[in-house]
Amino acid sequence: MSARHHPADAVLADYAAGTLRPGFDIVVAAHVESCERCRRHVRLFEKAAGAMMSDLPPAEMSADALPLMLARLERNPPAASADAPIAPPRDTRSLIERLPVKRRRWLAPGVWVQPIDVPQLPGDKLYFLRVAAGIRGLHHGHSGPEFTAVVSGALRDGKTTYRAGDFIECDTEVVHRPKVLAQDGGCLCIAASEGSLKGQGFLGELIRTIAGV
């Protein structure tokens, strides 16, 4: 499975620099995890950011910074690579499986939304959305940017089909009428949207339309 719709370079660069909005970075991570191309690109941007960091003008450190640091080394011996793991064994489940979730809410037959329980800016939303095959949203615009990654299934917007692994970035200028395609029994997405009273989005409007919220 290789994705055909990727985050823009600028988004991957911000991801590598660690400056994406909380929640939005998780949607990008979900794509990056399954996308070889974007992992490679993130590593390139990390190298650029690392080299540029070492060229920054140095900030002045406190006079006792180094002695304090050296004193701390005593209490923290370096880890040996082979026998003394410093971290608990890595959780090998995929990011999607590891995310802590809140209760699933059924919005309509065949449609549920499940908020993801991670730190975010006030009002922002990060959630899984599962929509059964064949359901279509109304034409809609956006009140703010939104990131979506397709986890499974497929959906179509106009002439574009998004399949598992694909990444969709929406901003306020785009108008959508996404339709979930009849295959694999529906479509699961992970999406982040910026807090706003309107709460619209690529899939958000689909929810609103169905649930009448």
Partner: peptide
């Protein structure tokens, strides 16, 4: 300071064929 302490503790995991020092420390 925390980052440099991690550098001290995780030095054995540094792989120079993968990343330079500045990139590793940056991440």
């Amino acid at each position: 300071q925390e980052a440099m302490l991690s550098v001290w503790r995780k030095a054995a995991f540094f792989n120079r064929s993968r990343a330079g020092a500045s990139t590793w420390i940056f991440t």
